[in-house]
Nucleic acid binder design. Structure first.
Length: 641
RNA sequence: GCUCAUAUAGCUCAGCGGUAGAGCACUUGCUUGGUAAGUAAGAGGUCACCGGUUCAAGUCCGGUUAUGAGCUCCA
C-alpha cells in the first residue's frame, strides 16, 4: 500500500504495517520519538495496523500533538491508576486534557484535599517508573460492559451504555494488565515517554457538567516535556498572578470589599478617578454615536417587573425591598433594578413615536443590582452591584443590520482606544424555547452575521445560546490568568416592546412594535476596569492613571519649587501630587513606581536653579532633564486618549 | 448554590493546647540624602463571628459569614 507523507513523498509498505513500522522505515531517530499517527486527519495509535493507501503523518513526542497525547496518557493511564491504587473505593469518570494540562474526575468517599496531592504524585511517579508499554484491545459493547461491570466502574458503564457505537470499544492495558481504561485514544505506546508534571489543584465538578448530577472530585495537573518547561509554566502563572486586579487594587489603593456588602465595590479616591475618566470617555463616545443619555429609578415597583416578565423569570436574582410597615402609608414591594431595559421602555413610551423618529437610542450609566450566587463572585469581574454603559436602540427590523454595523464600529473603536486590539465575537443563535416566528429569527440572525462579515471580524457561532427573545452578539476579553469575560453585548429583542406596549406609528398609519436592541460596550464599569488593570498590569495609559505625576523633592530647599510645578500641572488638568516628605529620592521613586505612577519628576537644587525637571517614566530607568515649560507642554499633550 | 481550602496588626505572613510574633507601613527622634527600601525608638490585635471539648483554645470540634480555586449559573 502507498502511504503519503506530509511532504507529499510516498512510501510503500506491506498492508497491515503500523505507524511504528513506517517510522522505523524512515529512520531510527523518528521511530524512537514517534508516539502516534494521524491518518487522513484522524489520530490513531502508533501500533494500529494500516490497511489501505492514505495520507499519514507521524506524531512525535516533542510536537504539540505529541505533548497533548502525553498529557492524555498521563491522566487516563497514570493519574487514574494512582487514584485507584490509593482510594480503593473510588469510581473513575473521565480524564481529558485541557490547555497546559489535564484533569481527572473521580468519585471518592473520603475527600481529597490539596494536601493529598503529593502522595498521589508519588504514586504516579512509581507507576511511570515501570516504563510499561501500553497496548490496546478492541472489545464489543457486550464485552466492554461486562469488563467494566466486573471492575465496578459505574461511570464507564454509563458511558458505554450511552454510546451509539456497537463494536470496537478501545480498552488500554499496561503491561501487568491490572489497570484497564476505556478511551477513544490515542495513547503513548509506553509510559517511558512521560515528561515532567505537577498536580495543581482539587475541586468539585458535576458529572457531565450538570448541577443536578452528583459532584465528583476533579484533580487538575499540568504536564510538559521536561522540567524546564514545567518550571517556566509555573513561574508564568506566578507572574500572571501579580497582575491580578484584586492584588493591584489593594496595592494601588483603588477599592475594597467588605463582609457587610459582598459583591459591592467600595471605590477609593484613586479607583473612582479611573472610573470617572472611563465614564467621561464613554459618555463622549455615546454622544458621538447618536445616543441620548437618560437616567431612570433604581428602585421600582414589582408591577413593572411583573409586566416585563422579570418577576417570573429572574426573581431569584433580584434584590427585593419592602417598606417598613410601621412607617409606610401603603405597602409596596419594590425591587432594585437588575436591568435598565424596562425603564428605558417607559421613557420611550412617553409621547407618540413615528417611524420617522426611529432609530431612537437611549443610553444610561445604569446602576444595577443582581443577587449572584455566592460562589460566582470574583473581585470586580463578577459583582452584585455594578453599573452598565447600557443603551437601548428602538428601531425597525430593516434597521437592524445597519445598527449592528454602527455598534461594532463604536465598540471596536472604544476597545482600540483602551488598548484591546484582540477580542472574540460570539454569535448566539435561537434556543429551543423562544418567542417570535422562525421567519423573524432567520432575518435577525442573518442581519447580525452580515454586519460582522461586512466589517471583516472573525466570529464564532454558539448554536442555541441566544436569549429566548432574540439572537445576540457577545464581545469577550481575557483576564490575566486566561479566563474569558463577556464585556460588550448586542442583543436583539422581539419580546419586551410588545410586553410593555412600546409602539410607533408606521407609514401606513398603523401601530407597530419596534425592535429593541439591548447593547453595552464596556459591559460594566466594574468588570471593564478589572480587565484594564490586568491588561496593563496596573500601568494604565496616562489619561486613565489615577495619579498621573508625582513631584518628588530631593531636599527640602526645593519644596517651594515642587509645589509651584504641581500647581502649574494642576492648572492644565493634570492629576499631580507633590511628595515633600523627608525621605531619600530612591525611597520615593520606589514607592511611586510600585504604585504605577506614570511620571515621577525628581526635583533637586540643579532643577530649581535651572528651572528644569528630571522626568522618569514608569517602566524606564532613564531620567531626562527638561525645561519646566517644555515638560508641562509635553505632559499636557499626553493627557488625551 | 455545590466541592475543597482559607480567615492572626493597615499590608504580607509565622505561631497549631499553656503570658500574641516578624518584616513592611504608621508615629516620634536623628538624618537634607540625586532616581526601586537611611537610622533608632515607640505605638498598634476581642487571633472573622457564634457555640462546644478542655484545668486551659488563634491553636481541637461543630455552625455562621466572607474570601480563594474550580464546577454550575450569568435571561
Amino acid at each position: 500500500m502507498k502511504l503519503t507523507l506530509p511532504d507529499n513523498s510516498i512510501r510503500e509498505l506491506p498492508e497491515g504495517s503500523s505507524g511504528y513500522d513506517l517510522a522505523k522505515d524512515i529512520g531510527a531517530g523518528l521511530a524512537k520519538a514517534a508516539v502516534a499517527i494521524e491518518i487522513d486527519g484522524e489520530q490513531k495509535d502508533l501500533h494500529d495496523p494500516i490497511n489501505s493507501d492514505c495520507c499519514i503523518s507521524i506524531i512525535t513526542i516533542d510536537s504539540d500533538k505529541g505533548l497533548e497525547i502525553m498529557r492524555h496518557t498521563l491522566t487516563a493511564q497514570v493519574l487514574a491508576r494512582a487514584l485507584k491504587n490509593i482510594y480503593s473505593k473510588s469510581f473513575l469518570a473521565i480524564g481529558p486534557t485541557i490547555d497546559n494540562g489535564f484533569y481527572y474526575d473521580v468519585e471518592v468517599d473520603e475527600g481529597i484535599s490539596v494536601d493529598d496531592l503529593q502522595k498521589i504524585e508519588d504514586e504516579m511517579h512509581r507507576i511511570i517508573k515501570t516504563n510499561s508499554s501500553i497496548t490496546k484491545k478492541l472489545k464489543s459493547k457486550k464485552d466492554a460492559l461486562k469488563i467494566f461491570k466486573s471492575l465496578k466502574e459505574p461511570y464507564k458503564v454509563e458511558i458505554i451504555n450511552e454510546s451509539d457505537q456497537k463494536d470496537d470499544f478501545q480498552l488500554y492495558y499496561q503491561d501487568d494488565e491490572k489497570f484497564i481504561d476505556l478511551c477513544r485514544g490515542p495513547h503513548l505506546p509506553s509510559l517511558s515517554f512521560i515528561g515532567s508534571f505537577k498536580l495543581t489543584k482539587v475541586s468539585g465538578a458535576y458529572w457531565k457538567g450538570d448541577s443536578e448530577n452528583k459532584m465528583l472530585t476533579r484533580i487538575y495537573g499540568t504536564a510538559w516535556n521536561n522540567e524546564k518547561e514545567l518550571d517556566k509554566y509555573l513561574s508564568d502563572i506566578e507572574e500572571a498572578q501579580k497582575r491580578d486586579h484584586r492584588q493591584l487594587g489593594k496595592e494601588m489603593n483603588l477599592f475594597h470589599f467588605q463582609d457587610e456588602a459582598p459583591g459591592m465595590v467600595f471605590w477609593h479616591p484613586y479607583g473612582w478617578t479611573i472610573y470617572r475618566q472611563l465614564q467621561n470617555f464613554m459618555r463622549q463616545k455615546l454622544e458621538d454615536s447618536g445616543y441620548l443619555e437618560i437616567n431612570t429609578p433604581l428602585v421600582v415597583d414589582r408591577k413593572l417587573w411583573e409586566a416585563s416578565g422579570h418577576w417570573d423569570k429572574y426573581r431569584e436574582n433580584m434584590f427585593i425591598t419592602e417598606i417598613d410597615e410601621e412607617h409606610a402609608n401603603e405597602k409596596r414591594v419594590n425591587a432594585l433594578k437588575p436591568m435598565n431595559c424596562p425603564c428605558h421602555v417607559q421613557v420611550y413610551n412617553q409621547g407618540i413615536k413615528s417611524y420617522k423618529d426611529l432609530p431612537i437610542k437611549f443610553a444610561e450609566f445604569g446602576s444595577c443590582h443582581r443577587y449572584e450566587p455566592s460562589g460566582t463572585m470574583h473581585g470586580l469581574m463578577r459583582v452584585r452591584g455594578f453599573t452598565q454603559d447600557d443603551g437601548h436602540i428602538f428601531c425597525t427590523e430593516d434597521q437592524i443590520e445597519s445598527e449592528t454595523g454602527k455598534f461594532i464600529e463604536l465598540l471596536s473603536g472604544v476597545y482600540a482606544d483602551l488598548g484591546f486590539k484582540d477580542f472574540d465575537i460570539k454569535l448566539s443563535t435561537r434556543p429551543e424555547t423562544r418567542v417570535g416566528s422562525d421567519d423573524v429569527w432567520d432575518r435577525a440572525e442573518s442581519s447580525l452575521e452580515a454586519a460582522i462579515k461586512n466589517l471583516g471580524y472573525p466570529y464564532k457561532i454558539d448554536e442555541g445560546d441566544g436569549a429566548f427573545y432574540g439572537p445576540k452578539l457577545d464581545f469577550v476579553l481575557t483576564d490575566a490568568i486566561g479566563r474569558d469575560w463577556q464585556c460588550g453585548t448586542f442583543q436583539l429583542d422581539f419580546n419586551l416592546p410588545e410586553r410593555l406596549n412600546a409602539e410607533y406609528v408606521g407609514e401606513d398609519g398603523n401601530k407597530n412594535n419596534p425592535v429593541m436592541i439591548h447593547r453595552a460596550v464596556l459591559g460594566s464599569f466594574e468588570r471593564f476596569i478589572g480587565i484594564l488593570i490586568e491588561n496593563y498590569a496596573g500601568k494604565l495609559p496616562f489619561w486613565l492613571a489615577p495619579q498621573q505625576v508625582v513631584i518628588a523633592s530631593i531636599i527640602s530647599d526645593v519644596n517651594d519649587y515642587s509645589i509651584e510645578i504641581m500647581d502649574l500641572l494642576k492648572k492644565e488638568g493634570i492629576r499631580a501630587e507633590a511628595d515633600l516628605r523627608n525621605e531619600k529620592i530612591s525611597y520615593k521613586v520606589r514607592e511611586h513606581s510600585s504604585k504605577k505612577v506614570p511620571i515621577i519628576l525628581a526635583i533637586g537644587n540643579n532643577e530649581k536653579n535651572d528651572r528644569t525637571v528630571s522626568i522618569r517614566r514608569i517602566g524606564s530607568n532613564n531620567n531626562n532633564v527638561l525645561k519646566l515649560d517644555d515638560a508641562i507642554k509635553e505632559i499636557t499633550k499626553e493627557n488625551s486618549v
